[in-house]
Structures are given as C-alpha cells and as structure tokens.
Simulated assay, not measured.
Amino acid sequence: MTRKLTELTVVGDDKTGLIARVTSLLFDHGINIEDLDQAVRKGIFRMTMHVDAAEMTTTKDDLREKLHALGDELGVDVKVRFPADRETKQIAVLATKESHCVEALLQAWASGDLGADISVIIANHAALKPLADYYDIPFYDIGDEKGTPDEDAILSLLNDYDADLIVLARYIRILSPNVVFRYEGRIINVHPSLLPSFPGAAAYRQAIEEGVRVAGVTAHYVTTDLDQGPIITQRAFSVPDDAEVEDLQRKGQPLEADALLEAVQLHLNDDVTVHWGRTNLRDGAEGYQLGLPEAADAANPDRPIDGLANILADD
C-alpha cells in the first residue's frame, strides 16, 4: 500500500540551527517526521524529510506559507510536496547504450504496473532514441562525441521535468557530487555485482578473474561514494567453470532489469526507508523479492548449527 507521506526538501547555505527551526515548526503543527536525511558539502546544506501530515493542525496553504517564510528568513529554498500535489510521480531515466533496463521500465510504465510516469530519458549517446521514440518519451542526448555528458544540461532537464526519482538504467558514467548531492535519496542505480564486491567498472570481468562461483546484481541508492550507497535489492546466479564475460552478461542482464524495477517500485510505494546507510522495509510492505527467491532460499540446508556441545554438556 502506498503511504501518503509529504516530502520536504531544504537546500541552501549551511547555518546553525537549520534543522531545529524546520523540525520545530513541524512539531508545533502536529506533523510527525517519518525519516530525515541531511548532509553538508562545501558549505551547502541539503535535507530531505518524509513526514506524516494526515493529522496536522493547520491547512496545506498555511503550512506552505510558513515554511516558505522560514526559508526566506534562513536564506534556503524549501519545497513541500503533499501527496495530492503529485498523484503520479515523475521519473527521469538516465542511460547510455544498453537497452535492457530501459526496456523493462518502459514496459512496466506502458502496462500501468510502474505506478509513475517516465517523463524523460536522458542519455550520453543517441543509441536509445529509437526506443524512446517508440514509446513517445522525450529523449535528450547530452553527450559529446566521446560520450562525456554535460551535467549542467542534466541538472537543467531534471529541473524542467520536475523529476521525483532519477533511475540510472545502466548509465555508464559516474555522476558528479554536484548532481548526486542535490538528489541524494532519489537516485537509484543498478550495478552488475553483488555489492559491496566488485564496485566500479568491469564487474563481470572481475567476478571471472576472482573465480567466484556465485555472481549477481545490485540495485542501490546512489551516494557520492561510488557504488557504496544503501542496497535495496539483489539477485544472484551461478558462474559456470568456462564462463566468459558475455556469458555473465546474458545471465545478468535480465536480473539487472528485474532488480532495478523492484527497487524503483519499493521507492515509489514508500515501502523502503534508509537508516544509518541501511535500507529497511516499512511495516506492512509485502510481495517483494529483495534477494533470493523463496524456493532457492528453502533449498539451503538448515542443520547443523551451533549448540550441540551445550546440549551434550547439559546431559
């Protein structure tokens, strides 16, 4: 069930007491804070809050006015999004050349299963434009002849399309802290390894070189630390003795799409929260396959476990 939480974002110059002033205003109006994420980078403060305003003791317009007035006083930008303000959230997809994750997202959107609109595809190559055109989605190639992206163009497009969520659908570039910091907690990436193993480029090749027997994929929130953001979903598969990189790609790509799509749906449904760098399911969240499928998990042995020596000693 989608939770009707209100989102607040605060961005601006760092000042002492910012958090206290905002949270005190919310408390005074009967608003409960569900989760809060804040950080400071190079003197710029960012805070994202999800709050339960269902029983607040004021009106939406009055709360907006007071928060905007507080923002003006403190010299920060405050945005408030009540659930009714955006019945359908807007997703911006970032991609490069690989189509499988983009295709999975577009199919889920076209079938009505995504629960959000894909408003734009932003890529650093033109390869996926035919796919975007087929689904009638605006497409922007912001890469130069080497595929180097124009991040000012990315930020401008994200603002123009008012993106609620940014999905990196095999976007083979590292987003700079300038982008990540502004949208942290609202960027989901899929990586072709069981993180924290094999971060960075060429993860499938690393898996083969290290001789792993089980490889996999991970969908995670993006932070300014490369491939170290909170893990949302993972999928695993066996690595044959004679596997080549292409073999792992064939096994992994459908799982990349599956893990990414589930992570997106978890986020859109407000069924996942992050605390101290770890994701947790909210109470009542059901029907997700965060890791191994139940059948695979059930096939694992459940004995022996520690404790037999203690039992014998008691006898």
Rank of each mutant, 00 (worst) to 15 (best):
M1A: 14
M1F: 01
K4P: 13
E7N: 13
V10T: 00
V10A: 00
V11S: 09
K15W: 01
K15M: 04
L26K: 02
G30A: 13
E34I: 05
Q38N: 13
R41L: 11
G43K: 10
F45S: 06
D52G: 12
A53S: 15
A54E: 09
L63P: 07
L70W: 11
L70S: 04
D72T: 07
E73P: 01
E73F: 05
L74G: 09
V76D: 03
V76C: 09
V80K: 09
F82W: 11
D85S: 11
R86C: 04
T88P: 00
K89C: 02
S99G: 03
H100W: 07
E103S: 08
L105Y: 09
L106P: 08
Q107E: 15
A108V: 07
S111V: 10
I122A: 12
A123Y: 04
H125C: 09
H125P: 06
A126D: 15
A126I: 10
L131Y: 05
D133L: 04
D133I: 00
D144N: 15
D152W: 05
D152H: 14
A153S: 04
N159L: 03
N159Q: 12
D160E: 15
A163H: 10
D164R: 07
L165C: 08
L175D: 00
V180I: 15
G185F: 11
R186F: 05
I188L: 11
F198R: 08
F198S: 06
A203I: 04
V214R: 01
A219G: 07
T223M: 03
T224M: 08
T224I: 10
I232K: 03
T233M: 00
R235E: 02
A236C: 03
F237V: 00
D241T: 01
Q249D: 02
Q253I: 01
Q253D: 03
P254M: 07
P254N: 11
L255C: 11
D258H: 05
A259P: 12
A259L: 12
A259M: 12
L261Q: 05
E262N: 05
A263H: 01
H267Y: 14
D270A: 10
V272Q: 03
T279D: 09
G284S: 07
Y288E: 08
L290V: 08
G291C: 09
E294L: 15
A295L: 10
D302G: 06
R303D: 01
I305Y: 04
D306G: 02
D306E: 15
L308D: 14
D314V: 08
